[in-house]
Design a protein around this nucleic acid. Structure first.
Lengths: 347, 347
DNA sequence: TCAGACTCAGGGAACGTTCCCTGACCCTCC
DNA sequence: GGAGGGTCAGGGAACGTTCCCTGAGTCTGA
């Protein structure tokens, strides 16, 4: 019942309503706040009848423990930061990798009862903020996503002493555990597939070379070709569709006779496909195209894209579990996941 | 200088190092913690020399204020929740909308000095957790993304009294402010474009009808066609590529004579394109295809997709600012953003 | 029957801030 | 010269939990 002048705790009208505290529940139930705390936290050493009385008071008042107070006293937050290096405005903002990774990691963390704090590390000042944020004890651990080699952030964050892992191997080894794909193996398979088809002039569209994934894929391309005495034909992209389209134009200008392209990711392969279509080259008859990642869109290109499957969702999930392990046991081992080739129409 | 036996505060080796507190800084600087607090928070009523001494102690000790303690006493967290309804495992996990919206919103929040808490609301139990999470005072406000009409979450959360806004209009009006596209207008333009081309049998692939965006787009399709005396040909999708491909198959079976399709989003249009190609229909000669959203991938289909541009990034940014307004002023007005048609090759 | 162990509730000190309030000190002006 | 006002530092009470410790009460076994 509401007495005149009282406010229903459910209704907020402008004035913020103070939520009930442990103390209020204790008073309502006629027990100490220690007992209420014990009930809330499911401790066994509490009499069934008291538990029942307390539970009744809890539901009656709609009590929910205050997070900040809890965090303060327990010195943990139950929160994990996902730190994504944010490209300058506009670049690859619909990146399927972002969606897959963030989503898969969030699911895994949710399942482990952790909350997710998403941090975009873009400008230099925001990097400073990230460091402060972690140091402020807002999170129990962090997961780095798609850091490039030039980025000082991993080293800085590693020094905080907080448990941190990386999604993808870092340029600087030993800083923290990571989970990566077998980029070397996957790219080798891709190029080998083109060779097996009898392709003679095999070009590649590389990713940004400050990222280890791009480096590895380029290295494997070069090594594999070298063994056959063929020369490398390389154009540089940045993992976006448009950079793939542009790089393909350049490749066609550099070597009009090329008959195959290995793009370091599917997005760039999709861009390359468009350029080839505009240039009147048939795929795969005139030019074979192979990508990397096997994103869902690869199934819907015309022709459907042959590519290397890298299990992005699983990589994210494994990275998450790696972090949880690190938090729980203080140690965790890096993992490399296998990749496999998926042959469709484009090569 | 480190005395033997001491630990550098920078280095953590197994044992977690306690970070310095306000108290420690005060002791180091030889002032009270009140003064340190004032310096940290940039209050003007502090003598320059004291400020300097304190700042020196702060940098020397590497002090960063503890977030939990701050949140506890100030009753605010500087954190905003982005609550995304998470589809059952696997469904549209590379959704470009997810990436765009989360990214744009995060950028805007970052710029406003807010932290982002990403919450995936999937199963029923996780919904319960979301409610508890908000009630626990972990965030100052929340933004709902792509809630379907059947979802009880918006109503439940609205009752917490916390400032909440919705990205996209909700099925239940009046619950909270929102920012939406002009779906009605955009879909009308799309269908009108097909009519203007002289298309006779215009079908549509609808989105999931428990979402207002899908409803609006379908309604506009129906209304626009009704005026011309044509009959509606509708297949149901769920906004994913594969559902678009499947729906297209069904449409072709239902009416082999159709000469145009309006897909309620680009992803489904992309799926439809594939089915049409497999069925040997030429686009746009035999069948015109038009999508909705103008995602980046629409530029890379063959043929390039004609579509309706809905400014997803701006919608997310506006939704974010709406929330910040709501928090600051206690009130905010819903917004509808204009849409425009983008004519490419497919229609 | 009584000591000792065991069970379980309550009191109260932390956790690390912010912020109100008091009061020291200096300056100005009558 | 002293009252009054203004500036600015320090003390300490919150904020809402957890968790250690004490102690009341019950049970067991000699």
């Amino acid at each position: 019942m509401l007495v005149a002048g009282e406010r229903s705790p459910d209704v907020a009208e402008g004035v913020p309503v103070r939520r009930p505290t442990l103390h209020a529940v204790a008073a309502r139930a006629g027990v100490s706040k220690s007992s209420v705390s014990r009930v809330i936290n499911g401790e066994p050493t509490v009499a069934p009848e008291i538990r029942q009385i307390v539970m009744a008071a809890v539901t009656e008042l709609g009590y929910v423990p205050n997070g900040a107070a809890r965090n303060l006293v327990t010195q943990k937050t139950n929160t994990i930061a996902i730190i994504v290096s944010d490209p300058p405005e506009g670049l690859a903002s619909d990146d399927p990798m972002f969606a897959m990774v963030v989503r898969a990691a969030s699911r895994e963390l949710e399942a482990a009862g952790k909350q997710v704090s998403l941090v975009l590390a873009g400008s230099d000042e925001s990097r400073k903020r990230v460091e402060q944020y972690l140091a402020a004890g807002h999170v129990d651990g962090a997961m780095l996503v798609s850091m490039d080699g030039a980025d000082p952030l991993p080293a800085v964050l590693a020094r905080t002493g907080l448990p941190i892992v990386s999604h993808g191997r870092l340029a600087t080894p030993g800083l923290m555990p990571w989970v990566d794909n077998d980029n070397l193996g996957g790219a080798t398979k891709a190029v080998q597939h083109l060779l097996d088809q009898g392709r003679q002039r095999i070009a590649t569209i590389s990713g940004p070379l400050d990222m280890t994934a791009a480096q590895d894929r380029l290295t494997a391309y070069r090594e594999t070709l070298k063994d056959t005495g063929r020369r490398s034909i390389v154009a540089l992209g940045d993992f976006t569709r448009i950079s793939g389209a542009e790089a393909m134009r350049q490749l066609l200008a550099d070597d009009p006779q090329l008959d195959a392209v290995f793009a370091a990711n599917d997005l760039m392969a999709i861009g390359a496909l468009r350029t080839l279509r505009e240039a009147g080259r048939r795929v795969p008859d005139d030019v074979a195209v192979i990508g990397f990642d096997d994103i869902e869109a690869a199934l819907y290109t015309a022709p459907a894209l042959t590519t290397v499957r890298s299990p992005m969702g699983e990589q994210a999930a494994r990275t998450t579990r790696l972090l949880l392990d690190l938090i729980a046991h203080g140690t965790a081992d890096s993992v490399t996941l296998p990749t496999e080739i998926v042959v469709r129409e484009s090569a």
